[in-house]
Amino acid sequence: MRRGVLPAVVVTALFGLYLWAVVGKGIALVRTGDPFGVTMGLAALVAPLVCLGLIVREWQLAFTVQKMADLLAERGELPVDDLPRSPGGRIDRAAADAAFEVARARAEAEPDSWKAWYLLSFAYDAAGDRKRARAGLRKASALFRAAER
């Protein structure tokens, strides 16, 4: 089993238990017929469903990113983390910025390439920009799924 999968499965299972408990309470509140109880019950039903949608979205992203990584590994094109590091393990900022510029230029030159966006997302991560790294993975994932069709 890949590293990180077990904790994700455990957290998802715990969320399932939470969802089961909250939905049960929400239904009970709606059944009271009291306007306040109905309102609270509906809120109790909507919030976990929104969270469930977000969790499904994250699992879909994870599976797609893994497919992309497997395909790149098959081709021998998986990015290698060879950036210089400090003795404490931090990536050298100048090296990360230089690698980022190369990846950004490639993504700009090939805006419809899932591989370019995949590589850019890892360059963002190395540069410390986790938000853009995740957005890059989402873009790569969307392009990859579109290419599979």
Rank of each mutant, 00 (worst) to 15 (best):
A28H: 14
A28G: 14
R31C: 12
R31P: 13
R31Y: 12
G33W: 01
D34V: 09
P35L: 03
F36N: 07
F36I: 11
G37P: 00
V38N: 05
T39Y: 12
G41E: 00
L42H: 08
L42V: 07
A44C: 07
A44I: 03
V46E: 04
V46S: 12
V46F: 14
A47E: 12
P48F: 08
V50P: 08
V50W: 10
L52G: 12
L52V: 13
L52Q: 07
G53S: 13
G53E: 10
G53C: 10
G53F: 09
L54W: 15
L54E: 14
I55G: 03
I55R: 08
I55F: 07
V56T: 07
V56E: 01
R57S: 14
R57D: 08
W59V: 13
W59M: 11
A62V: 14
F63E: 08
F63P: 13
T64V: 14
T64S: 08
V65Y: 11
V65Q: 11
V65G: 10
K67V: 08
K67C: 10
A69D: 09
A69N: 07
L72T: 00
A73S: 01
A73T: 06
E74R: 04
G76I: 03
G76A: 04
L78S: 00
L78D: 00
P79W: 01
D82A: 02
L83P: 02
L83T: 02
L83E: 02
P84N: 03
P84M: 00
P87H: 05
P87Q: 05
G88Q: 15
G88E: 15
G89Y: 08
I91Y: 02
I91S: 03
D92Y: 04
A94I: 05
A94S: 06
A95I: 03
A95H: 11
D97E: 13
A98H: 09
A98D: 05
A99I: 06
F100D: 09
V102I: 14
V102F: 14
A103C: 09
A103K: 07
A103T: 03
R104M: 11
A105P: 11
A109H: 14
D112P: 10
D112F: 15
W114H: 07
W114S: 09
A116R: 05
A116F: 05
A116D: 00
A116K: 03
W117F: 11
L119S: 05
L120K: 03
L120A: 04
L120P: 04
S121Q: 02
F122N: 03
A123T: 04
Y124L: 09
D125Y: 10
D125G: 09
A126G: 05
A127H: 02
D129R: 01
K131H: 13
R132L: 12
A133P: 00
A133C: 03
A135H: 09
A135D: 07
G136S: 03
L137P: 00
R138C: 10
A140P: 02
S141K: 06
